[in-house]
């Protein structure tokens, strides 16, 4: 499975790509496989503050709904409108066109608590308890 080196990861299977105080968030390839066919994404609300580990968006499959947690605290600056008409992008291109929302990071220190690609890869392989 592909876990790009330039991203940070959460135990709840989100990735985050930080660029200064701005960041983009999505779900990992592992997550999109577990979710199976994404049928709807409840987009994060622009301008809303989110805190690390709290739900910011929801991804729905036919048989389940998954909360997507903010990897770091901040304010939502944008959400991927393309997912409204084409939620399957999350499955097809989780690190690219299937991104979920963008943030203005409020506490950069939050990033330090996240996993690197290698740590996340080990975390995913370490067992089904996640």
């Amino acid at each position: 499975m592909n876990f790009p080196e330039n991203l940070r990861y959460t135990k709840t299977h989100e990735w985050i790509k930080a660029d200064g105080s701005k960041a983009r968030v999505g779900v990992t390839e592992y997550a999109q496989k577990e979710i199976s066919d994404v049928v709807f994404v409840e987009l994060a609300k622009k301008g809303h503050p989110v805190s690390q580990g709290k739900a910011a968006s929801v991804i729905e499959s036919v048989k389940a709904a998954f909360d997507i947690y903010a990897p770091v605290s901040g304010t939502v600056t944008d959400a991927n409108q393309a997912l409204e008409s084409n939620p399957g992008l999350v499955n097809q291109d989780p690190y690219g066109a299937g991104w979920l929302f963008e943030l203005e990071i409020s506490s950069p220190g939050d990033l330090d608590s996240l996993m690197t690609a290698r740590q996340y890869s080990e975390f995913v392989q370490s067992g089904p308890q996640h």
Binding site: A64, A65, D67
Partner: peptide, 13 residues
């Protein structure tokens, strides 16, 4: 359809 809104899937949410 749109069952992911419903109680049998979302439970307390």
């Amino acid at each position: 359809t749109l069952q992911a809104r419903e109680q049998h899937i979302r439970r307390e949410r």
